[in-house]
Write a protein that binds this DNA or RNA. Sequence first.
DNA 1: CGCTCACTTGATTGTGTTCAAAATGTGTGG
DNA 2: CCACACATTTTGAACACAATCAAGTGAGCG
Lengths: 253, 253
Amino acid sequence: MSISTAPSRFNSKLTSQCQNCSLSALCLPIALADEDINRLDQIIERKRPLKKGEILFHQGQAFDSVFAVRTGTLKTFNITASGEEQITGFYCPSELVGLSGIDNNNYPITAKALETTTVCEIPFSHLENLTSQIPSLKHQLFRVMSRKISDDQQMMVLLGKKNADEKVASFLLNLSNRFKKRGYSATSFRLAMSRGEVGNYLGLAVETVSRVMTRFQKNELIEVDGKEISIINLSEMQKLVGIADDCARIADI
Amino acid sequence: MSISTAPSRFNSKLTSQCQNCSLSALCLPIALADEDINRLDQIIERKRPLKKGEILFHQGQAFDSVFAVRTGTLKTFNITASGEEQITGFYCPSELVGLSGIDNNNYPITAKALETTTVCEIPFSHLENLTSQIPSLKHQLFRVMSRKISDDQQMMVLLGKKNADEKVASFLLNLSNRFKKRGYSATSFRLAMSRGEVGNYLGLAVETVSRVMTRFQKNELIEVDGKEISIINLSEMQKLVGIADDCARIADI
DNA sequence: CGCTCACTTGATTGTGTTCAAAATGTGTGG
DNA sequence: CCACACATTTTGAACACAATCAAGTGAGCG
């Protein structure tokens, strides 16, 4: 469970931090031979932590790397023609950000830290070269990108078809699943993002997010204390987002 | 401009249909040596045409292949828990469908023909093997998937932030761009999908789509004759969706 | 020719937005 | 540590946009 963040080890080329990283099974969920993990490890740069509000990369900036979040949280957003920000995703530890930059060789979105955040920088050209030597790495990369495509499509369903209650419930359950996957509580967690950011992401006004959460609390579905959320009635929440027994991923945003 | 669809050539393993295909520069926009194109060509199966309403693959079905549309149009959709269909995309010639199936080894969506449609089936395991021999093919595949991710994110912006007028205008301009890319008129084209399908895709009711189009026609932005659309005032339409000069892709859904 | 389905148009309703203001929380400098 | 400024969240009231309900029109097809 210990994640090395000591400054002395930034950019360390010592043997396999990846191997010791608690996130290794998730970030690129690779069944790699030790030797291969070492090779992967060598191309990865550990960056100094980003402080809250700091930017990892800018929309339009030349694409070099994808990044794996180690600790903290990022948001990605797009500045629209009218100048407002549209959040396209939140990224928790073990998740990969920047994949949308490959196509045009520049990032189409900005990535910003919501709190103190550390990331592993993975120079994409190195990663791509490495896939020639490690076929299973290539396959995992295809899988990660494919997964992102299906997730985004579920998000489109959410934005296009769901009402405010369903949107907020889906959002909370999605976070819950992501915490659970990393070994944290699925029912009690802290939101790294503001209500405004939640609303922006879900296509709702701040006020609506606040009202929905208050109502959920009144109906004893959740307990809210500022950014701390506890899901009290998980099964009722799941009903709300319309989980079909045979299609659990629908809830997974 | 001639695309061979004669039945006698289905599954033909003769030399390089890909090379002669008018879509070759788009489908996997590859600068491949002739020899490499032949290798790609050999793993591709030309399927018999799908009739309107026929299904290419089902949600939940085991994933084998991605498909390139050669002629016609497909829609992909997701059946939600409540049983309604949410359209996640329309696919025109040269576009690749099925990439979201890689992750879980099954398709998370259904693909259905909107009109008579021919596709090239590309068995993914073969394609993946081929990428080991042709690095530029691998890179193109990463690019295509990356592009899909950015496009979907633009779609999220549309669904989350735009009003009915902007949604419909973005949709029409997006189609316009896609026709243009393939050498067809950017201002005059036929919709393969019904108003209902447009609405479903854009998160709008049928009636709203119809009203917006009627209004656009009254304002002399477009001319509508059933499924035939002509964009009369392209620049005004672009203003409507909020194209920033420095960020043209924003309109590109 | 008659049936069905898709599309259009109108009237009404409702969900979520917007505007406004108060309450709560957070960070900073003295 | 407190006081102050500022941001975030909550709550209330009025409004607006798009959905829904309903009816009518038109096109395609057996």
